[in-house]
């Protein structure tokens, strides 16, 4: 069953550079694909190819210039601002490169935040926090502030926060971009775990072919269009080699 369906998606940015001169940049150009529920998709490509824009459009943080995104068969462009906020709150979990944890909140409070916004019961919230913290190995850090944790630990906290509201779709934008290789492996292991064991659909944007090789499918973007789709029917190492070959061929 398709969780997400993207049809002829276009996104153009207009920027005024001087009086009377407007430059139009094409970020996404006629993009169409489907994402099945429970799949793990990595999106790759060079800088400026439209990866982050695509993620923003899927997350309802930006509106497309043309085309449509259907989530569970419902078009996102038809939703109001408040409905989009509700969609993000209930259906989407974001994981970002710079963790986006609030400095003034403890790790526990940061993880609780989406559920508090959703007005869930306190008991339910605390149980959920403890469950995810235990699962991703940050339980002992719950009362600490983000500044006291390493990058890898902060990213795991960020993953816990993304999962805390039990969303269907996880959008991860370069989640290993600021991490060393060991921490990166831990983070991607967490992402894989939530995909396989918790059944979450994951869309991961990355530059790193090694991280992308954990996915079931890799979409390689170039100038806003899909250059190639590679489905992972093989061993991880083989898929990794295949990704390297395709990236070198660009």
């Amino acid at each position: 069953m398709d969780l997400l369906q993207i049809r002829s998606l276009k996104k153009r940015y207009r920027k005024k550079i001087s009086k009377g001169t407007v430059v139009e940049t094409v970020a996404i150009d006629d993009l169409s694909f489907r994402v099945e529920s429970g799949s793990f998709i990595s999106i790759m490509g060079k800088s400026g190819c439209g990866k982050t824009t695509l993620l923003k459009l899927i997350g309802g943080l930006d509106a497309p210039t043309a085309g449509e995104i259907f989530y569970k068969g419902k078009p996102l462009t038809k939703l109001s601002h408040d409905q989009l906020a509700q969609y993000r709150r209930e259906q989407i979990g974001f994981v970002f490169q710079d963790y986006n944890l609030m400095d003034s909140l403890t790790i526990k409070e940061n993880i609780m935040l989406p559920m508090l916004l959703d007005n869930k019961k306190l008991k339910e919230i605390e149980e959920s926090v403890l469950y995810y913290a235990q699962r991703f190995g940050i339980r002992k850090h719950l009362n600490k502030y983000p500044g006291e944790l390493s990058g890898g630990e902060q990213q795991r906290a960020s993953i816990c926060r993304a999962l805390s509201n039990n969303p269907k779709l996880i959008l991860a934008d370069e989640p290993t971009g600021n991490l060393d290789s060991q921490s990166s492996k831990e983070v991607v292991r967490c992402l894989k775990e939530m995909n396989q064991e918790l059944g979450k659909t994951v869309i991961l944007v990355t530059h790193d072919p090694y991280i992308a090789s954990f996915a079931d499918e890799a979409i390689i973007l170039k100038d806003g269009i899909i250059e190639r789709r590679l489905v992972n029917h093989m061993e991880k190492d083989q898929f990794f080699k295949m990704l390297i070959e395709h990236l070198n061929a660009f």
Partner: peptide
Amino acid sequence: ADARFLKQLGMTDKE
């Protein structure tokens, strides 16, 4: 930046 982050968490502009 904080506003963007809170928006991602699903807060409405009004909130």
